[in-house]
Design a protein around this nucleic acid. Sequence first.
DNA 1: CGCGAGCTTGATGCCGATCAATGCATGTGG
DNA 2: CCACATGCATTGATCGGCATCAAGCTCGCG
Lengths: 256, 256
Amino acid sequence: MTQTVPPTPALDTAVSPTLRLEPLKAACSTCNLRELCLPVGMSNDQLERLDTLIATRRTVPRGETLFRAGDNFLSLFAVRTGFFKTCVSSEDGRDQVTGFQMSGELLGLDGIGTDRHTCDAVALEDSTVCVIHYQQLEHLSHEITDLQRVFHKIMSREIVRDHGVMLLLGSMRAEERLAAFLLNLTQRLHMRGYSQSAVILRMTREEIGSYLGLKLETVSRTFSKFQDEGILEVKQRQIRILEQDALKRLVNSATC
Amino acid sequence: MTQTVPPTPALDTAVSPTLRLEPLKAACSTCNLRELCLPVGMSNDQLERLDTLIATRRTVPRGETLFRAGDNFLSLFAVRTGFFKTCVSSEDGRDQVTGFQMSGELLGLDGIGTDRHTCDAVALEDSTVCVIHYQQLEHLSHEITDLQRVFHKIMSREIVRDHGVMLLLGSMRAEERLAAFLLNLTQRLHMRGYSQSAVILRMTREEIGSYLGLKLETVSRTFSKFQDEGILEVKQRQIRILEQDALKRLVNSATC
DNA sequence: CGCGAGCTTGATGCCGATCAATGCATGTGG
DNA sequence: CCACATGCATTGATCGGCATCAAGCTCGCG
């Protein structure tokens, strides 16, 4: 049915009894994403200094772009609520979804290299992000060793993730790609307290297809096939995973 | 015919014929790759401090691995001479070449996130690398702002590069992929002083195919097709580009 | 209620995979 | 020096998975 609400603070240790109604002021120290986001593993002291970094929040209505390829790069963005896609496009207009981002994940790392964004970030539902002024982040990570360490890890993991997508695009067949996609998505949602078996997709078949290097019809057919085989229950964008093991087998087994 | 020697001849390092016990002293400050590698844009002062970072050099004979997925991560490696491939593999044995690295390029960024390497790095010809102890790099980039900045840029560019590969794997056809590959390769070689039109491939058809998400036969056929069309001259691994514009047109034009 | 965006499903065709044979360069041992 | 093995590349024939083209279908929304 509808996506179950996350068991809110899976991680509220002590310090959070303050009032819930923060205006536009963002604060890592009271954020319940702090175990998923930039602040992982920081002390309270460090968290308070991190708070100075997160100047503002910004809301991005569904369908709007947070930034576009070519935009000046000034800030990173941490997804607070909502859901994004990032996509690159070639000169001739082909485009490729390079990722889907959910709460606690960082957007904009692509811009650091050239001081310009190289992809578009589009909200797939009404979303809010924390704005992280990049120069301040660099400055602060100069002072806080742990921040530097975490930030490097985040970038490195993004590279590793990209390699995984390359493997998927380069060597998997349609069913394997979709299975891998669903497992990845639900695993990440699960970390955020959502059900491991019920998902509401935030993206269209076409966007999934673009990410997986398939056409939307192939995505649709593969969903139907999984449903026929009793692996999934598919109702438009509502997906229920009935046989997680079957998906895992698909991903891990060679060309059967 | 044969690949022309770069104008600034490979460094004067007479490769020691002695055993590999004692480390060769490496030094960024006298390295002629310093405009391509980690030291870009550093002052002489900073370069000297960088020298303290590069503890050792290491030679990697053709076919040997520099590191493997699962290895403990301790160091990054800067390619000094030679040529590498990196590849990831899935549990069922499929593997995917994720990149080819030449002089001045960094290897090992994937290991930062989890303190373990996630891919194999294999020398495709006899190579030498500078060993960059990662903790020391983190420490030093704490002190040298410029080093931190450059390092972040390098990681970011790697992410952007990966996105480009995703676009290629997700939406291009065989000819476009090979054309993009050749243009990228020659462009990088050109930056290093080699000819823009004559390349000697360091990798097999199979490795190219793995990188591009194609089978080796398809790579071979596509080379032959380009040759028939007068775009390339192909003699095994010796490639001469006769019509660079034709390649560019292939990459930039939609499904003609 | 009807429109339209997004999804499903079918029919057909093509690109690249697969299977298989041959060619070519390099190396090794007799 | 040749005979042979080996690894890599080329080329042909055939096959299959996914793209493409083309209808319908569903559901949310003005």
